[in-house]
Amino acid sequence: MALTITCPICDKRNGYEFRYGGVDKGPRPDEEGLTPTSWCDHVHMNKCVAGIQKEWWFHRDGCGAWFTIYRDTTTNLEVDKPEAN
């Protein structure tokens, strides 16, 4: 099944209207005590979760909004926010 994504402004749309913005890694790390290695890890290293992850998406062909959704990477389907989060 093709990926559909729920934009907070335009509602559910075809996934091809959107640009993937990467995994949501949480807030930027504190600069105090930040080493080049830990910054490099924050920027470049991904967990590559097989399951549900929080992601950024950009509604490129629509309203231009940036927002997050939860997607199950094993089924490539958008899912509700997991209760643990």
Partner: peptide, 10 residues
């Protein structure tokens, strides 16, 4: 209002 692709054009 709808904002989206029409003939592949935003």
């Amino acid at each position: 209002l709808l904002q989206g692709p029409f003939s592949h054009i935003p």
